[in-house]
Amino acid sequence: MNAAPPKPVERRLPSDEARELLALTRELVHRELLPRAAEDEAAGRFPREVFRTLGEAGLLSLPYPEAVGGGDQPYEVYLQVLEELAAGWLAIGLGTSVHTLSCHALATFGSPEQRERWLPGMLGGEQLGAYCLSEPQSGSDAAALRTRADREGAEYVLRGTKAWITHGGRADFYSSIVRTGEDGPRGISCLLVPGDAEHLSAAPPEHKMGMNSSPTAQLHFDGVRVAADRLVGEEGQGFQIALAALDSGRLGIAACAIGLAQAALDQAVEYAGTRQQFGRPIADFQGLSFMLADMATQIEAGRALYLAAACRRDEGLAFSKQAAMAKLFCTDTAMRVTTDAVQVLGGYGYTQDFPAERFMREAKVLQIVEGTNQIQRLVIGRHLTRG
């Protein structure tokens, strides 16, 4: 059974253009995502053409300046578009967030020549991106990464393995954080690696609990040669580039989490209003109505938190702590709400006849990606105690 169309959320938007963007996003969700999400997830099909459609509609370029081919929208608007996409199909919402993350290095730290050469294809949807930071032995401890890029004349030669790469093996380019120098963060750089580079290969996709239509795979760099003009920023600047991207990426995950939670709540409310027990809808029973009320309150709180962090980003203020808080709270909320949605549906919630069980499986990964929620607590704690 396909998920019901998400109910329009009452939103505070800064412009008529933003309202039109949200309306366009909802239309695309209803037309392109909802009719196929359940079937593609069950079959493990990667919907590459959907990202082309989003690119043609201008939805893959929203937070970037118009001067580089972007939509020139504030992060506050971009994140609400992500939420709408994730409410229709998490794999598309999260995939859009990952693509935006993969463009961040070039758009923010690239030279004018690099941006002019590569960004239009990225932001227009012709080129789908992936972000390569994690490795089999270094996840949250990114400074310990081992994949090397050694300079040989006008090229870098890459050797090593990246892990947990969304769109791994299917992306057209990989924003790759690699070691070009000494141990530790100062020896790390960023290279833009073409997806069709010789000696670059992907392992078979991971067999995951959910998000089956979004491939996640290891990437093997076995002497991959990359032209030196694909170095983004300066040598040794890669760790700074990675951290700058992650703060923004965490807000993307927070927005996706709230979208998924909203979809689960909408289904629970619809079911509770139609399911009859003891001669009346189960929504009339206090125990269940209180559960729905808590679900709705947590979603509203999460939405307010990620939007507050986005506004700080838009205003040029520090937002690292707020991004960690938003990622932590919103993804924990998604896990609670989807679990409760399964409970509201009872036995039906445990079957694949309704999308509630898929929502619950998908929610779990959001507590892990872009830094586990334990790492978010560590980040928040350090901000509080170190100023």
Rank of each mutant, 00 (worst) to 15 (best):
T274N: 12
P185N: 06
I299H: 08
S176P: 03
T372G: 15
C103Q: 13
R280C: 09
G381Q: 12
A87C: 04
G381C: 12
H383Y: 15
D40M: 14
R48T: 06
K321E: 14
Q277K: 13
P74F: 07
R52A: 14
G252S: 12
L59Y: 12
A227I: 02
G279D: 09
Q240W: 06
T385Y: 11
R115F: 02
E300W: 05
S289W: 07
G169P: 01
A4G: 05
S15G: 10
D266A: 09
L145F: 06
W118Q: 03
V269E: 15
A203R: 09
S138W: 12
Q137S: 14
R117V: 01
A254Q: 13
S175V: 01
T338S: 07
D294C: 10
G121P: 00
T25C: 15
M291N: 08
E182F: 04
A171I: 02
S140A: 13
M291P: 00
N212E: 08
S175I: 02
F239N: 05
L265M: 03
I253K: 07
A308P: 00
A144N: 14
L106W: 08
F173D: 01
A149D: 07
A272I: 12
A23I: 10
L90D: 04
A318Y: 06
A261M: 03
L328C: 00
Q262W: 09
E84F: 01
L85S: 02
R361T: 01
R303M: 06
H104Q: 11
A3S: 14
S248Q: 09
V226P: 04
V344A: 03
D72A: 15
G249P: 00
L59T: 11
V193W: 10
G346T: 08
Q267R: 14
L101E: 05
Y271K: 07
A217H: 07
D141E: 13
D294W: 13
L191K: 11
L328H: 07
M209F: 05
R115Q: 13
E39Q: 14
M211I: 11
H30A: 15
A197Q: 11
G95S: 03
C103D: 07
